Simulated assay, not measured.
Amino acid sequence: MSNTAPSPGPAGVTAADLTIGYSSLTDRVRTIEVPTSAKAAEVLILTQRRPGAPDAVVPRALEERASVVALDSLGVAKSRNAAISMAGRTYLLFGDDDVAIYLKGVLDAARHLERTGAALALGCAVDDSRRTRGRRSARAQRLTLRNSGRAATYLMLIDVEQVRSSGVRFDERFGAGMPNYLGDEYIFIADLLRAGLRCDAVPFVVGMHPSHSSGALWSIGRDLPARAAAIERAWGSRAMIPKAAIAAKNWGKIRNVRAAAAFVFRRHFTDAS
């Protein structure tokens, strides 16, 4: 009998292959809870301070567990890009300070990446009542511009080397902290797809997030222009078609002919902005 151990297959992926990159404002760092089951994972906490806010107060247990890096910037996309640059493990999960991470689902998603060669896996989440947020398919499926518009960053697990090699990063003109505060996740997926990388939605629950999220924002004055700008950035010159489809599908939330027309026909974003 040979004493040589077999090479580990996809099931050999462990927490030691994982970086969890939390993005947090300084006044919310203390709410971060790293799962105890992820002791072998690398943990990064990337903090940003709003004007007038205090510096981060990091609980000792969290400081001993994680690398805490204060960024001299605002905008969650900048924080996500810092996580991509700093991650030291094979896979990177983007965490938020209000998300509870379910390690089993994250590792199942990582095994999917290893098995398929995909660059990004978009998992599922439950809300604070343990109900599934959004739709959850029974099996993995390819992401496209048409089915990834409701992606959330805290559901994203990436193959770090593939993403780094592609040169794709989050568009720092979008996301929380920027005037165009919606759609940074959608644009990131769109850019990965344009770079020829495979992105999949997977049926694994990777975390719990409270019911409220920016994806539910539909106010006429601020949310519609920000949403339109993200669609235009993702789709380019073809954006009018998906904007019209989205306006029709969500008419019950808009209920204003003039605002719907402006959403569809007005140009809300240019690359020079």
Rank of each mutant, 00 (worst) to 15 (best):
S37W: 02
L103M: 03
F188C: 05
G177A: 10
A61D: 12
L120M: 13
P35I: 03
S23R: 15
A259R: 11
R142I: 14
R194G: 15
I84S: 02
A66Y: 02
D97P: 02
S24A: 13
R80I: 03
A272C: 11
A83L: 10
P242F: 04
K243C: 09
V34Y: 03
L92M: 03
D200V: 11
A152Q: 12
G12M: 05
A121Y: 07
V206K: 10
D55Q: 09
D127R: 13
A152L: 12
G52S: 12
I241S: 11
S7H: 13
T90F: 03
I187W: 03
N81V: 10
V257I: 14
P210V: 02
P242R: 01
S148F: 00
A140L: 04
G117E: 08
L113D: 09
G88K: 08
R222P: 00
G52E: 13
F188G: 00
W218E: 04
L103V: 15
A228S: 13
S165V: 00
R80S: 05
P203W: 07
W251M: 08
M156H: 07
L74N: 02
E63I: 05
I220P: 06
A109Q: 00
P179C: 05
T153A: 14
R198K: 13
S73T: 15
Y102D: 11
A61C: 10
D223I: 09
E232N: 07
A245E: 14
L217P: 00
K249A: 13
A121D: 01
L93D: 01
E114M: 13
G105K: 06
E42D: 12
N3K: 14
A239Y: 03
R150I: 04
N250I: 00
L197Q: 09
R255F: 08
R136N: 06
P242G: 08
Y102K: 14
R227Q: 05
V58W: 02
R222E: 11
V106T: 09
V168L: 05
M86W: 08
G167T: 12
G207V: 01
R194L: 10
D98G: 14
R89I: 03
A247H: 02
S165R: 15
E42H: 11
G167M: 13
A16H: 08
N147I: 08
R194W: 05
A216D: 14
V99R: 05
Q162T: 10
E42T: 10
R115S: 15
R164H: 09
K253H: 13
E33N: 12
P225K: 04
R89F: 01
S211R: 15
F94C: 05
R255Y: 03
A38G: 10
A16P: 09
H209L: 11
K253G: 05
V68A: 01
V106E: 01
A190K: 02
A195I: 15
G215P: 09
A247L: 06
R169V: 15
A118G: 07
I84W: 06
L18T: 02
G167Y: 13
L46P: 00
S137F: 14
R65P: 05
G221C: 13
P35Q: 06
K39M: 04
A151I: 14
R258P: 01
D200S: 09
A11G: 04
E42G: 01
D96M: 00
A234F: 04
A234T: 08
N250V: 03
E42F: 06
A56W: 03
T47Y: 03
